[in-house]
């Protein structure tokens, strides 16, 4: 473990509410240990602001940000660090990013996810309920409790199961949307469609699922994919861009199959 500490300048997006103007506000933090997580560094900043040890520029008070599990799985933390959702380290959520990825004297820019479909609640916190609505529209297999056959009655090849898992690993954080110049949610939607279509259980609702999810996605104001690939690059679970290809194919197939029905 390294003993040297760092001093940093943070430029943090402060916005008191959805309809209020926001701006980047600079803060100085010192004694940052490289072993700290990024969010622990922000905790130190906030404690400093509350205790009056760090200057509360503009009297915004401590910085509000979403976080919960702090082990990279709940998907709650959501900030753009130096222009990249979840920061510079591939396959890593902000909470798992550690300060050893930065250098003494760095200037770090911290902003919220920016997308029309994710309105800002306050500071770095956005409203991602559009994702829940997309799942509610079809991101499930309709099986009421109690009506399941024996689990081994539905064999699934290891390869299919592993592939389904790769897509199911999505944590719903929204980094894909934040990274996309079009604020497209197609990686998120594609991952769920792909997870369920890879499994025999998911075949029955195959067409209705993709049509309903895509239509809810469009209504929420997410943009369309124009193949930039930023989503997959920013994804903390490294979900493959294949999800979008698969989504397009499934959507096309479903519209053809259900035409006239």
């Amino acid at each position: 473990m390294s003993k040297q500490t760092m001093s940093l300048t943070l430029h943090i997006w402060r916005q008191p509410g959805p309809d209020r103007p926001g701006r980047l506000v600079p803060y100085k933090v010192t004694d940052v240990s490289p072993d700290m997580s990024f969010l622990e560094m922000l905790d130190v900043l906030n404690e400093g602001i509350i205790e009056g040890k760090i200057k509360d520029v503009g009297n915004y008070g401590p910085v509000v940000f979403d976080h919960d599990c702090r082990e990279g799985i709940c998907g709650m933390c959501s900030m753009v660090v130096n222009g990249e959702p979840h920061g510079p380290r591939r396959g890593t959520t902000t909470c798992q990013l550690h300060m050893r990825s930065f250098e003494d004297g760095d200037e770090i820019y911290i902003e919220p996810w920016r997308a029309k479909a994710f309105p800002i609640v306050k500071d770095l916190v956005v409203d991602r309920s559009a994702f829940d609505n997309i799942i509610a529209a079809g991101g499930f297999i309709s099986v009421n409790t109690g009506s399941a056959p024996d689990a081994n009655a539905i064999p699934i090849g290891k390869r299919d199961a592993d592939e389904a898992f790769d897509y199911a690993a999505c944590i719903g954080c929204g980094a894909c949307v934040a990274a996309c110049p079009n604020a497209s949610a197609m990686l998120f939607v594609g991952a769920k469609v792909a997870h369920l279509v890879k499994m025999p259980q998911g075949q029955v609702e195959r067409e209705s699922r993709v049509i309903n999810m895509v239509s809810t996605m469009d209504d929420a104001g997410f943009g369309a994919c124009t193949n930039h690939g930023e989503c997959s690059r920013s994804c903390p679970k490294e979900i493959s861009l294949d999800a979008i290809m698969l989504l397009n194919r499934e959507y096309m197939r479903a519209t053809v199959k259900t035409r006239g029905k």
Binding site: P149, A151, P155, K158, A161, F165, M199, Q201
Partner: peptide
Amino acid sequence: NIIDQCAAQGVPFAREYGGV
């Protein structure tokens, strides 16, 4: 029953090569 229910929901449990 829990395992049956979760498998039916599409939970991607680890599997053997034979599919079980």
